[in-house]
Amino acid sequence: MNARLHTVPEQFDDPVQQREAATLGMWAFLATEILFFGVLFAGYTLCRVRFPDAFAAASRHTDMLLGTIETAVLLTSSCAVALSVREVQLGGRRLATALLALTAALGISFLVMHGFEYYAEYEEGLIPAIHYTQHGVYAHGIEIFYCLYYFITGFHSLHVTIGVVLLLVMAWRTWHRAYDADYHTPLELTALYWHLVDIVWIFVYPLIYLVGRAG
């Protein structure tokens, strides 16, 4: 498997046109991903307008410190994967592979931290329908917040998991010289996917962790 042996399929004029078609297709997919998470965010918005105080109370139950660290981890991983694409474009292989492995490791550490959060929420009785022990006037609204929380963060973690698998495959292939400055479209598309996962989290962070923190 060598990038230099990569042939352009006959429907394309040249590698540039092939890359343009691939990135356009990826962006069309990413637009559907934006709307997939968008529905969950729209549901969140409506419920928050309906139960503003309960959402603030529920948000205070989340772990803001872990949430902030997780955000920093994902932002750093996004930079690492962007640098790895750059490195491949400049002809580097070892550093590019290392950066991809670093990105995957940061993704895994994100998942582990989120696992600890889920466990803490289980202990606190914040999992609707499974282990929910909240009482008081806001109990119903908090239940709705945590339903949305598990759907949003659960689907996000699923995306992170898929991203980690893709990144490891890309690291393996980069190490085995599948990509070089002339051909690296799959690596570029994987990086786009990972950045989108990062963008989703950029919005999850203030909506889940930062509500009602003042005072």
Partner: peptide
């Protein structure tokens, strides 16, 4: 992230349109 990491600033303008369309529908 969109402009620098995802390179929308320097890449094909068509990609900027598709990305904007996603957020516009949202």
């Amino acid at each position: 992230v969109l402009t620098i990491f995802m390179r929308l600033k320097t890449d094909n303008a068509l990609l900027r349109i598709v990305a904007s369309a996603g957020f516009a529908w949202l």
